[in-house]
Computed example of a mutant assay.
Amino acid sequence: MNRDFWRDKRCWLIGASSGIGAATAQALHAAGARVALSARHSEKLAAVLPADQRTLLLPADVQDGESLMQAHAQILQQWQGLDLLVYLAGAYTPARSWDLNLQTAEDILDVNYRGALRALATALPGWEQRGAGQIVLVSSIAALRGLPQSLYYGPSKAALTHLAEVLRIDLEPRGFHVQVVHPGFVATPLTAQNEFSMPHLLQPSEAAQALLRGMQSKRFAIEFPPAFTRRFSLLRCLPYRWYFPLIRRATKM
């Protein structure tokens, strides 16, 4: 990892109170970046990083656009700009199609996708004039194809990946670097709900290091761990008549 790349970069992490978000905040701070952390609970943010000259603890709820606007205003007041926005907020409830609950589906979509829209609507106006930067949306390998137990999560993350593709097309010519992240399995409070074996399970600190390396690169999609995600990505090329039987056999679902 190139520490000079991160020195004094102004980074806003939304969804930074646990899991990959918390580990990424700690890794960025250790690399010399200025880090603004947002999540709903201030006490959880304080447990991730103590407030210091390079850290802002800014409680905000991605389902409340006004709270995001207030956090963003504090960043501009303190740092006069922003170099990197990372959207890490996520919600997950495993479910099969016969257990569809509309309220759960709407709640997860609101956090995983609409929350990112709110964050972008907050940060993008005026950003280009202050000096364009980097936008990173943390999606999931589950966004790439339909999977069992992913009734709510997969479609919401697929929408996030699609959004990142559109942003890349529109904003790259304006000086922004847009990336999407497709992690495999990472040991977080969300994946702790899974009752099946998770291959190539990473610890949050390992995922954070992979994320930092990816954010230093020019590529659009950041995927890890490579041993798992490269094989899974090949499934996108399979015709449906092969994909559906294969995934049923592989998952035994």
Rank of each mutant, 00 (worst) to 15 (best):
F5E: 04
A16T: 03
S18R: 15
G19A: 11
G19P: 10
A27K: 03
G32L: 14
R34T: 09
V35N: 03
L37Y: 12
H41G: 02
S42T: 05
K44V: 06
K44C: 04
A47F: 06
A47L: 09
L49I: 04
T55Q: 14
L57Q: 01
D61I: 03
V62H: 05
G65H: 04
E66H: 10
S67C: 10
S67L: 11
Q70F: 06
A71F: 11
Q78D: 00
Y87T: 03
G90C: 05
G90D: 03
S97I: 08
S97G: 01
T104E: 10
D107V: 08
I108P: 03
R114C: 12
R118D: 07
E128W: 09
Q129G: 10
R130M: 12
S139P: 00
I141A: 14
G146D: 08
L147V: 08
Q149D: 11
S150N: 10
Y152F: 02
Y152C: 01
G154D: 05
H162R: 13
E165D: 15
V166S: 07
L171W: 00
L171I: 07
G175Q: 08
F176I: 02
V180S: 14
V186C: 06
A187Q: 13
H200I: 06
L201T: 09
P204M: 09
E206W: 02
A207L: 09
K218Q: 10
K218C: 00
F220Q: 07
A221P: 01
I222C: 05
I222W: 03
P225L: 10
R230Y: 00
R231V: 05
F232A: 14
R241M: 01
Y243Q: 07
A250Y: 12
T251P: 04
T251I: 04
